[in-house]
C-alpha cells in the first residue's frame, strides 16, 4: 500500500500477567496497513484485542514483538513520540474521564497548549474545532453539565485541535444514548468525508459500521475478517461465532434467503431491505 498511514508488522502484545510473568497473548502477530483517508471500522467482542490494537496506534502501548509504523515512524522511538501522538489522535470510551478543564474551550485548548503553539493560533484552532463538531455555542459552558454525546464531541474537538492525520475512536458510543450515538457518528463521518481525516472506529455495534469503507473483525488477538461492509455483513453465522450480532436488517435477509428467497445480501439499511423485498415481489408480477 503506497499511502499507508498506519502499518503494523507481526505486531504481538502480551499484558503483564501475574507474578511479573507475561500474560496471555492479546495480539497475535497482526499485519495491518491502513490507507490515508480511509474510514475503517474494527469490530470484535470484548477481549478480542481491538482496544489493545487501538492503544498501539498512538504508542500508549508498545509492542511485545513486531513493529508499528505511523507515517513511517516507529512507535518505539522516544524522540518521535510527540509527533506520533499529534498525528494519531485517540478518543476514548468514557466521556467524563477525558475532560481536563472546567470550561469547554479550555479543554479543547489543552492539546495545542501542550504543543507550545502561540495563543492566537490556539484560539483559532479551538474555535475551528468547536465549529466542526457543532459545539461552538457551548464554548463557555462547564463540560460536566453536558450530555454524553456533547461531551464526546468536545473530546473529539480536543483531538481535532492537534490537526491530526488520523483519529482513532475506541468505542466512543458505548456509554451514550441513541441521540448521542447519532451525534458522534455524524461528526465522525463529516471528519472523514469533508476533511479527509483517516478514521478508525472501534466498536462492537455493527449498525455503526454501515458507512465505513472497510471492516476488520478481530477475535483472540487475530484478524478474522477484512473487507467492505457489503462483504462482511452477510457472513451471519461466522459473525455469530465471533461474538458479534448482525443488525436485524441483515438477519432478516439472511433468514429469508435460507427459506429460498433470492434476496441481495448487501441490503444493509431498513430502506434498502424494504426495497429489495419489494423488488422481489414486484418483479414477479406480470
Amino acid at each position: 500500500m503506497q499511502d499507508a498511514i498506519i502499518r503494523t508488522e507481526f505486531l504481538t502484545f502480551r499484558y503483564p500477567g501475574e507474578d511479573q510473568k507475561p500474560g496471555p497473548l492479546a495480539l497475535d502477530s497482526i499485519d495491518l496497513e491502513i490507507e490515508k483517508g480511509d474510514f475503517v471500522a474494527i469490530l470484535g467482542h470484548n477481549g478480542s484485542g481491538k482496544s489493545t490494537l487501538a492503544r498501539h496506534l498512538n504508542a500508549i502501548l508498545l509492542p511485545s514483538g513486531g513493529k508499528v509504523y505511523i507515517s513511517g515512524m516507529d512507535t518505539v522511538d522516544a524522540q518521535l513520540l510527540q509527533e506520533i501522538r499529534r498525528r494519531v489522535g485517540v478518543v476514548f470510551q468514557n466521556p467524563d474521564n477525558q475532560i481536563v478543564a472546567s470550561v469547554v474551550e479550555e479543554d479543547v485548548a489543552f492539546a495545542p497548549e501542550n504543543l507550545g503553539l502561540p495563543p492566537a493560533e490556539i484560539r483559532r484552532r479551538v474555535d475551528e474545532a468547536l465549529k466542526i463538531v457543532d459545539m461552538y455555542d457551548y464554548r463557555a459552558h462547564a463540560p460536566h453539565r453536558l450530555s454524553g454525546g456533547q461531551k464526546q464531541r468536545v473530546a473529539i474537538a480536543g483531538v481535532i485541535a492537534m490537526r491530526p492525520d488520523c483519529i482513532v475512536l475506541d468505542e466512543p458510543t458505548a456509554m451514550l444514548d441513541p441521540k448521542g450515538r447519532g451525534e458522534v457518528l455524524t461528526t465522525i463521518e463529516t471528519l472523514n468525508r469533508d476533511f479527509g481525516i483517516t478514521i478508525i472506529l472501534i466498536t462492537h455495534r455493527m449498525e455503526e459500521t454501515i458507512n465505513a469503507r472497510r471492516l476488520i473483525v478481530m477475535n483472540d488477538g487475530k484478524i478474522e475478517m477484512d473487507g467492505p461492509p457489503a462483504e462482511v455483513f452477510p457472513q451471519v453465522e461466522r459473525l455469530h461465532t465471533l461474538g458479534l450480532s448482525v443488525p436485524e436488517t441483515t438477519e432478516l435477509i439472511w433468514r429469508l434467503r435460507q427459506q429460498g428467497l433470492d434476496l441481495p445480501l448487501d441490503a444493509l439499511t431498513p430502506e434498502d431491505c424494504a426495497a429489495a423485498i419489494y423488488s422481489h415481489f414486484d418483479i414477479s408480477q406480470p
Binding site: E248, L252, E271, C273, A274, A275, I277
Partner: peptide
C-alpha cells in the same frame, strides 16, 4: 425496531406485510 421500519416502508411502497416488530 429495524424490522418495523422495514414493514412501514413496505407498506409505503404498496406491498404491506402487516405490523412486525421482531425478525
Amino acid at each position: 425496531p429495524a424490522v418495523t421500519r422495514i414493514a412501514m416502508r413496505l407498506a409505503e411502497l404498496g406491498r404491506p406485510i402487516g405490523p412486525c416488530y421482531t425478525v
